[in-house]
């Protein structure tokens, strides 16, 4: 039980980029897109049986041929700038029907991922996820960055299109990152790794839809590219974004005009000075949130 490495690549001070599914699959799409573009090579996995219920069975002519579990795999890429280890988990190990990982299994998985990082002398970890925000889907998503150490803040301040929690109005530097994309950050801190979680903004009214949000994944990758000093072409994400955008527009048209009118006002929230009072007051923000909530409730939960 645990980790299975198929090979021992020679890596020089690699960084680890980890991703699991979450809201809008923003993090995992960002991490997986980068892995694909860089053609990273698979070198290991976390054995699934203790963490997951199988997801598919294949029976052929009455014989059980195969039982498939969600994958949790490691990949590596040697680049000129930095060697990179990727970890991609197809599911979060959940307990008791919860949506995101928490508790014993989540902690155990986070430690297994970091065991591999440690074995290859990695000292920096990136995770990625979604930041549910009062923004509009026609606006370029910002990236909320959460480090696990004070020393990383100056570096983050140098990233473009990125905010710290203290920059976000009404947050006071506080917040919560659910699931393993967040937990890994904490476990990394406990074990002395420096780590940053990059969260792409997703409009509050899209968070419950079974749609990915590649526009935010692109924002995350732009920041990641800058941080890692690598250059990759992200056109593929634009193509994916165009497809999703169509479906979002179709959904948006179904929202009652009164609520849509409120949401349209989010177009005026620019990313220029996020800490400054925007054109929407706190009271109006509350009203928008209430209206969106009501709409989803009426619609049957909204996912």
């Amino acid at each position: 039980m645990g980790i299975r490495l198929y090979q021992e690549p020679q890596l020089e001070n690699p960084i680890l980029i980890a991703g699991w599914p979450g809201i809008g699959n923003i993090g995992i799409i960002a991490v997986d897109t980068l892995r694909r573009i860089l053609e990273a090579e698979e070198f290991g996995e976390i054995e699934p049986w203790d963490f997951f219920y199988p997801r598919r069975v294949l029976i052929k002519k009455g014989v059980l041929e195969h039982l498939e579990f969600p994958n949790s795999k490691f990949y590596f890429k040697k680049t000129e700038g930095k060697d990179i280890i990727f970890f991609i988990g197809e599911e979060q190990p959940t307990e008791g029907g919860r949506m995101y990982a928490e508790g014993r299994k989540a902690y155990y998985m986070a430690n297994l991922v970091l065991d591999v990082a440690e074995e290859f002398k990695c000292r920096r970890v990136y995770t990625s996820g979604a930041a549910v925000a009062l923004t509009h889907h026609t606006i370029k998503p910002r990236v909320w960055a959460v480090p696990n150490s004070e020393s990383l803040i100056p570096e983050i301040r140098g990233y473009g299109n990125t905010v710290l929690m203290s920059d976000i109005e009404g947050r006071g530097g506080h917040g919560n990152i659910t699931g393993l994309n967040g937990l890994l950050l904490g476990v990394a801190k406990k074990r002395g790794f420096e780590a940053i979680c990059l969260m792409g903004e997703i409009p509050v009214y899209l968070q419950g839809l079974p749609l990915s949000y590649p526009k935010a994944s692109k924002s995350v990758l732009e920041v990641l590219n800058y941080s890692l000093k690598i250059e990759v072409n992200l056109d593929k994400l634009d193509e994916l974004d165009q497809k999703v955008e169509q479906r979002i527009e179709e959904f948006y048209k179904q929202i009652p005009s009164e609520i849509r009118g409120q949401l349209d006002r989010l177009k005026q929230v620019t990313d220029a000075q996020p800490a400054e009072p925007g054109p929407i007051t706190e009271e109006e923000e509350k009203k928008i949130m209430e209206d969106v909530e009501k709409f989803f409730k009426k619609r049957g939960g909204g996912g």
Partner: peptide
């Protein structure tokens, strides 16, 4: 017995506990 069943878990569903045990 009917012994020639072909089956694949449909999307959105999960295998049965019996399939897990058999594996």
């Amino acid at each position: 017995l009917t012994r020639d069943l072909d089956y694949q878990t449909p999307p959105g569903e999960r295998p049965t506990l019996n399939a897990f045990l058999l594996w």
